[in-house]
Amino acid sequence: MSCGKPHETDCAEVLAEVWLFLDHECDDARRKLLERHLDECTPCLAEYGLDEKLKKLLATKCSGEHAPDGLKNRLRQSIRDIVLETAEVTVESGPEGTVVEVRTSRLEQSF
Score class of each variant (00 low, 15 high):
T104G: 08
V102I: 14
P6H: 06
S63N: 04
A16L: 05
Q109V: 12
C44R: 01
R106K: 07
V91N: 10
E17M: 15
P43C: 08
P68H: 02
L107Q: 13
Y48L: 14
F111P: 09
E96Y: 04
V100M: 09
L22E: 05
E92W: 02
D10C: 03
E8C: 01
K53F: 09
T90C: 03
F111D: 13
K56C: 06
K72Y: 00
V83L: 11
E88S: 15
H7W: 11
S63D: 03
D28E: 15
E40F: 07
V18R: 03
A29L: 13
E40P: 06
P6E: 13
E25V: 05
S110F: 05
D23T: 13
Q109E: 14
A59K: 09
L58H: 03
R103I: 00
K32W: 10
K5T: 10
P43K: 06
E92R: 09
F21N: 04
D39I: 08
G4C: 03
C11K: 08
C3A: 08
H66R: 10
R106C: 02
T60M: 04
G94V: 12
T60S: 15
L84K: 07
P43T: 04
E17D: 06
V14E: 00
Q77S: 10
D27T: 01
T42L: 14
P68I: 01
A12F: 09
A16E: 11
E25K: 13
E25A: 15
S93V: 15
K56Y: 07
K53Q: 13
S93W: 05
L58K: 09
E13Y: 02
L107P: 00
R103V: 10
A29Y: 09
V102L: 15
P95H: 00
S93T: 15
A67H: 00
R31E: 04
D27W: 00
N73Y: 12
A59L: 07
E96P: 00
G97K: 09
A46C: 11
A12D: 05
L75F: 13
N73P: 03
D27M: 03
S78N: 11
V89I: 14
D39S: 14
T42V: 06
G94I: 15
E13V: 13
P68A: 01
E108Y: 08
S110T: 11
S105C: 11
T90F: 02
L75E: 14
A12Y: 02
K61F: 11
D81Q: 12
G4F: 03
D10N: 07
A87V: 04
E8H: 06
Y48P: 07
D69W: 06
R30Y: 05
P95N: 00
F21L: 15
V100H: 01
M1K: 09
F21W: 05
R74Q: 15
D81K: 12
T98D: 08
A29H: 12
